[in-house]
Amino acid sequence: MNWIIDIGTNTLTKVVGIGRAFLMLTGALIAFPQWKNVRLTIKQIYIVGVQSLLIIMVSGLFIGMVMALQGYTILVDYGAEGSLGPMVSLSLLRELGPVVTGLLFAGRAGSALTAEIGLMKATEQLSSLEMMAVDPLRRIVAPRMWAGVIAMPMLALIFSAIGILGGHLVGVEWLGVDSGSYWSIMQATVEWDKDVVNGVIKSIVFAIVVTWIAIFKGYDAIPTSEGISLATTQTVVLSSLTVLGLDFVLTALMFGIN
């Protein structure tokens, strides 16, 4: 009978956890408009956004280059290498930009957020904020939440842009695709609302989910070294899986049903 009890306990723990995560989110976001928090948010945008730029740009460059390489070898058989531009740009804007940025962001910034907040909890900094009558939800959680949500869509756009340039580098400069057709067919094919806006919407959704998971896992971590290590792992695993799962749902909603 023990396994029935286990199922019940686990389900309850999960549901209670989701409830606490929502409480944390509402507590943090209701409190936002304060001038001090704007300054803290800008600092966090620097930490999670600007400092993630390098990994995002390098990844974007290589993914764009690889796609041009792979795409060219297939397209050239059909004499369709002129379509390399739209192929690279559509894959990046619709899928790879938001998704890969989401995954990289979870690994680069999400894990850092979890570890930082978890350690703040373990060293009683969060408790001491509470005792100093400063709400840690406003002071610690809200700026980081907003910073993630603001920074990640921008990172996704930068990722796509650099990827398109990487595709140009390999496809046009190296393999000799006509530069004019690379850009002009791309411009003719890519639609602002269908491709660019949908990609941005995806990355905003991923940003909310990844940042939320990262912050909550830190805030809810067991304040020991094992607890923080577990929370950091859970952040990366859970947010990567959620990004991939949500991507399927969003793609189905945006492009699947006409």
Binding site: T123, E124, S127, M131, V134
Partner: peptide, 27 residues
């Protein structure tokens, strides 16, 4: 109410990203 009480934590619980001056100035 907490503004009129304060607590000295066992670990000190100083904010590690600020100098001692800023820690004291925080509240």
């Amino acid at each position: 109410t907490r503004k009129s009480m304060s607590m000295l934590f066992q670990s000190g619980a100083l904010f590690t990203d600020m100098s001692v001056f800023d820690n004291v100035a925080f509240a």
